[in-house]
């Protein structure tokens, strides 16, 4: 057996990225994340060093929820990752707009989904508008919205 292990921290680019031929209906490669309490505690700095309902079961339960709730911004970051991987430098000039519709908790498996819903052409510039959302392991949407970027 000569199979080599893959470094789990190696960058995984998308197989297909945005270009001027990307058509409406194109489904962008999903990204899946396994959210753990450790990841939630690692996320950013000063706040995660203080016990709060984003990182502590006791405090979350004192606030009336069973498990700590993942920082909404942490889940949004997954869509940001997708934007950069798909558009490359073309994420500049674009936007992301989302609604948080369901809480995310430790041990959830979150998958980003995106489909191209519109092409906008201005002169030589092409912009793509995307429907974006994140689903949990039950297939339930937790974040929904829209994003856009430019094609270079």
């Amino acid at each position: 057996m000569s199979t080599k292990s893959i470094d789990p921290t190696a960058f995984q680019p998308m197989k297909v990225t945005a270009d001027k031929n990307t058509m409406v209906g194109f489904e962008i490669e999903p990204i899946t994340k396994n959210l753990t309490l450790d990841k939630m505690r690692l996320y950013r700095s000063q706040w995660s060093r203080v016990r709060n309902w984003h990182n502590d079961y006791e405090i979350a339960q004192s606030w009336g929820v069973d498990k700590p709730l993942v920082f909404a911004s942490q889940v949004m970051e997954y869509l940001g990752e997708m934007l950069v991987k798909f558009f490359g430098e073309g994420y500049l000039g674009g936007n992301l707009s989302v609604s948080i519709i369901q809480p995310v908790v430790p041990e959830d498996v979150i998958t980003t989904k995106r489909v191209v819903k519109e092409r906008v052409t201005e002169g030589n510039d092409v912009g793509l508008v995307l429907d974006v959302w994140c689903e949990n392991q039950h297939g339930e949407k937790v974040i929904v919205g829209e994003a856009s970027g430019l094609v270079n």
Binding site: L42, S45, S73, Q74, V84
Partner: peptide, 28 residues
Amino acid sequence: RHAWANDDYNPWYIRDSPFGGRIAPPTF
């Protein structure tokens, strides 16, 4: 720290980017 927390090891954040240095993720 962000890369470890989110398993996003884009070299633009870790090493260098086309913008003339390391950048942070757009939603950072």
